[in-house]
Design a protein around this nucleic acid. Sequence first.
DNA 1: CTTGCCAAAATGTCTGACATTTAATAGGCT
DNA 2: AGCCTATTAAATGTCAGACATTTTGGCAAG
Lengths: 250, 250
Amino acid sequence: MTLDGLPHHGGGAEELARLLARALLAGRWQPGDAFPRELDLCAHFAVSRNQVRNALASLTATGLIERTAGRGTVVRAVVDWHLLDPLMSEWMVGLADPDPQLVREIFAFRYSAEPVVARLATEAAEAADLERLEAAFQGMTRTAGEPEARGLHAEYDVAFHDAIYLASHNLVWRQMGHLLRPSIIALIQSSQAHVHQEHESLDDSLARHGRVLEAIRRRDPAAAEHAAREVLRRTAIDLGIVDAPAESTH
Amino acid sequence: MTLDGLPHHGGGAEELARLLARALLAGRWQPGDAFPRELDLCAHFAVSRNQVRNALASLTATGLIERTAGRGTVVRAVVDWHLLDPLMSEWMVGLADPDPQLVREIFAFRYSAEPVVARLATEAAEAADLERLEAAFQGMTRTAGEPEARGLHAEYDVAFHDAIYLASHNLVWRQMGHLLRPSIIALIQSSQAHVHQEHESLDDSLARHGRVLEAIRRRDPAAAEHAAREVLRRTAIDLGIVDAPAESTH
DNA sequence: CTTGCCAAAATGTCTGACATTTAATAGGCT
DNA sequence: AGCCTATTAAATGTCAGACATTTTGGCAAG
């Protein structure tokens, strides 16, 4: 419950918030646990109480902690976290050891949502949206298989899926593009672990992405929905969420 | 651009934030406009700079405004708003004159999302979820048609749809229950306006809700998806988003 | 055993001064 | 005139310290 082992930081309330948030996301405290007091944080990080209070305000706003006058600060349960807050997504990316349960939940959401969004995109996409999809797909193609461009490839991957959400032209759906980055970053970290069938997997994934693009361009709702689901099915395999390609396509 | 006409308030930064947020949501300022300065807000509302800064921090966190040292505070565009932030939903409920475009966007989202969520619910619902659905549905039935219980009926309506999201047992989907309250409150305000075919509409809506419950209880994914879509189709008519029941059921 | 009071500890608030950033402005030089 | 620079003004950001408020627990009287 102490704050031993937390790294120091350069400066600024934002970075302090990020640091504490990542410790929380990594499971450093359990739900219901007492969080360090303001003055202890001030002392440990050598910052003013202002900075600490600002940082804690961010954690409160994202549902990570709950503060009450007189009682103190306690850590909230995972179900109370505001997973759709952009700040939260920012804090999740590059997390060394993300909670596999959380990764699975986010993926399950995407698996159910993205086919619908792809369908919407066939109806709402305009020229600019198609260009964005096209550019992202070509970026993916260009960087595929180059080991040193792994990060860049992931960025194009994020851009591709984000472009689908944007193409839906719905204010609510497009908010959820934030979830993509942590989800996809987790994917490449996971696939870095098991280096099995690297080439097959990538080619297959690329082809499936291409079919989504094509379906949206043809404005074929059923095909887009199906293709998006196929992309995510491939991703599920690579993430190790489903261990075998034993499932049929329908 | 001034703050004439803004009502005063009882006290507390939360209420001040709520007040300013509602003014923003009501379109009091245009995107890109300059927002009042801290000291002006202090003077107008007779509160300390602390309270003002706390309130503005909330508005910043929800993407309503953007602040930069030296430049000031400017109002952000609607596409930058964090519509999925619980605070935002709280601020939206009971808004006197909600932006019809925004209401339509939120409804379009629900129309595409809830059928999928209902399908998930058939697979993931447990006993407690069915009880919650059942209780909400019976509450809706009990309060249907009673003019003085209009607000209570809306609450049961919210509870019913929220129960669907909860029954999906997915961390991301259940976050979106927040969107329901403003959406459904807008509905009853709208239906208060045109008092056409009050009884028919309510009976029909109730029956469609019942079919969702039944489908989830039977664990019939296709039926649940279809029934949820039918509920929202009814709602679309009542909201005046589609003006006629000219569309076929399939 | 209960009740009430008091003290300790935590977060919340206020105030005033100062720091920093940004934009506009005035001035001098070519 | 035109341009570059230094200054000023105006806004948000930060700090430090004292004080207020809320909650909890202990202690003592009944």
